[in-house]
Design a protein around this nucleic acid. Sequence first.
DNA 1: GACAGCTTACCAAGCAGTAAGTAGAGTCGG
DNA 2: CCGACTCTACTTACTGCTTGGTAAGCTGTC
Lengths: 209, 209
Amino acid sequence: MAPDTDPRGDTRKRILDIAETLLLTRGFNGFSYQAISGELGVKNAAIHYHFPHKTDLGIELIQRYRRRFRRFTEAQADLDAASRLDAYFELTDSYYRRHRQVCPSGILSTEFHTLPCAMQDEAALFIEEMRAWSVAIARQGRDGGVFHYAGSAEAMGAVMFSALQGGLQLARVDAELLGTLKYQLKTLLGIAPALPERGQQALSLPVEG
Amino acid sequence: MAPDTDPRGDTRKRILDIAETLLLTRGFNGFSYQAISGELGVKNAAIHYHFPHKTDLGIELIQRYRRRFRRFTEAQADLDAASRLDAYFELTDSYYRRHRQVCPSGILSTEFHTLPCAMQDEAALFIEEMRAWSVAIARQGRDGGVFHYAGSAEAMGAVMFSALQGGLQLARVDAELLGTLKYQLKTLLGIAPALPERGQQALSLPVEG
DNA sequence: GACAGCTTACCAAGCAGTAAGTAGAGTCGG
DNA sequence: CCGACTCTACTTACTGCTTGGTAAGCTGTC
């Protein structure tokens, strides 16, 4: 029916892309297979062909995100702590710019009690990886003498992670909060610039091949 | 605390109580009228008698919460900043203890895009009130010479608000995070006690049906 | 007899999920 | 080079269940 402009064979990937957008804007319980098939221009059952159950789709979404996040962090192996922090902030910003999405950890922890067990397990792994990354940045910054803050790196990383997750959600209601938040986190880390910066390098998550 | 527990006559209030628990554990899209009527022991249409549309119920839930929050803050008119901060932390803890609920602001901002417009408006008002309160605590503490932190009170309040909202969600996955977070926030405010208080013990994750 | 506070009995729409059929491309024996 | 077979990637058509929501009737109280 619809004249294909795209080469066939990537339907599965396009399903995941659409589902990811829907997940991060509306939540896992906030979208249906119809919403995906409608946007993709296929029938409902086509989605079930690739992902028999919605749980299968949800798990694959998190696993794909974990792989992407892993590559994102590995790509920063040689960066200093300040650059990693900027990358973290830019990652957060990129969610906001994309239709005021929130971080996957924010959706998954908020909807946690309503998720199937298999998704809960996968979500817990992802959240732990994000938390550990935030802690690693805080630790690296202090060890390198770049960050200066009271308390442990574990605790400071937890504050950064929690604040950015919460701030990304609240930015939907208060657009200025996210910028304020990033600036204050830098202040608390002892590296605040003279003015809240606007044009950081575009470091976003690489798209899966 | 509600003084009345009489079985009949306050169905409306009991509906709101059950709905509030469901909202804070499962989200607005995560519960149905059947879930309320089932727990209350009435028929589905009885809920519709009191709240014709689910939107009506949602708005009343937020408005009731705003009234309660206003009384909560007004009751602290004479308290110093440290006590207000403790009250804020205790409020956060009380959510966690009640079946790992999250703060209403966390649910409402995360589900924001899926909420009816009238609920969005009400949610925005509530979130702004919470943010303002957090900022007021930060400002009072600094003005009184109790808190010591870099940056503006606006920014510090935003960090506290965002971090506690995010932390309450993440506590569902990582039980120790909330305690760590509160301690580090006090550290960043320059009022950390000698040892982190270990208030809550880790319960095993209950899977909700 | 008026009214609040329900119940009974519905409804249409939307949900995830399934079974069966099919178009097209690739494979393979003869 | 052809027909038969096979596999992928769907579509068509459907199911059973849940959802928010409604209309009408019933019952106890003032």
